[in-house]
Write a protein that binds this DNA or RNA. Sequence first.
DNA 1: ATAATTATGGACTTACCGTTCCAGAAAGAT
DNA 2: ATCTTTCTGGAACGGTAAGTCCATAATTAT
Lengths: 200, 200
Amino acid sequence: MSRPVEFDRDQAVQKAVHLFWQRGYQATSLTDLLDAMGLSRSSFYAAFGDKRGLFVECLNVFASRNQALLQRARDRKPPMAALRSYFERNFGQTSDPDLHFGCMLVNTVIELAAIDQGLCDLAGQHLKTVQDLFEACLGDAGAEPDEAKQAAAFLMMVNEGARVSDRQRISIPDQLARINTAFGYVESSIANRNPANAQL
Amino acid sequence: MSRPVEFDRDQAVQKAVHLFWQRGYQATSLTDLLDAMGLSRSSFYAAFGDKRGLFVECLNVFASRNQALLQRARDRKPPMAALRSYFERNFGQTSDPDLHFGCMLVNTVIELAAIDQGLCDLAGQHLKTVQDLFEACLGDAGAEPDEAKQAAAFLMMVNEGARVSDRQRISIPDQLARINTAFGYVESSIANRNPANAQL
DNA sequence: ATAATTATGGACTTACCGTTCCAGAAAGAT
DNA sequence: ATCTTTCTGGAACGGTAAGTCCATAATTAT
């Protein structure tokens, strides 16, 4: 009955995620987005409402991809190894500077804290979900509930800090060394309190 | 011979620091700045060149204030207590949400990483200076040189992470608990390797 | 008092922002 | 093949951004 949409919506959103991730919300103009997504202004507004609406969608896509990454590792490895791989994959994976954009959620919190509280809160919620996943992994690794909560909060702080360093193009070995330091602290703390779990 | 400047330059810069710190570089318009600093466009351009020039000046002012904070604590307290007080002062001090802007250097790195590499690098340099101060404190506390370097890098990561949490209006007790966790790890690590320094 | 010099306020310029709108192209249903 | 519906490209809009410029006000030196 009617003419069908010509572009692949999911693919267009992927492109937008990449741009927003790299340059942030404010510095990404609609023109940049249209060029990258390969569609015209009218199609854009028909499909996504407005720039902010697209950003919300991108935030959600990024968050679920991010959570899936950790969840998959959790299904396949021992809990502490899964946690470690989440950190190492995010930071050590490649030396291509074009992939060191930190974490879109962290970037959003910082950029928009005083500008758009709704977007900042949404990003914060997603981060909280990841922190809950951390906590679950730590529980699996044998940490007591309160210890798991405390260590998860600590690891989220480490994650956020590592994402900041990531944007400064810190060398990968240095980055991995920091993560290793942090995990060494957490693991020895869990092992000390609960020697039965020397094997994590 | 000539008419003197009517405004207090230092005071005007302070106001600008506050604004940039809170809202970031891009979201702070020249109009915002002029209103807060209480001067006209012509005076502004005569005194500071342009918006970017003022931002550089603000970054330097913020960084030196920040370093002075840690340096003063270092002069007055045992080294680990000085480090702790730096972290606690920056996060626990007040519950006024209007003062939880994180760290202007961290904010700048995140906001401008892909936008203005010069400004990002300048902020990164200032952060590195703070990290060197961390390292010096840890050395004073009895850490071996390589251990001090490693722990300083770790603490900078914690600092950056805490600044991110700060912008999410995380509760002060939670924030202090995280910092306490991190310092507990570092202190027990130093004490274990070098039991002579049980007193830090 | 007057001349010389410099700061100041505000209008102006240029460029880009996000968004709206409309004419026309493309596709399915009959 | 035609009609209807929906999508598409691009022009246009109002608003705001940073930066420039000039007439005027204010100050000091003579």
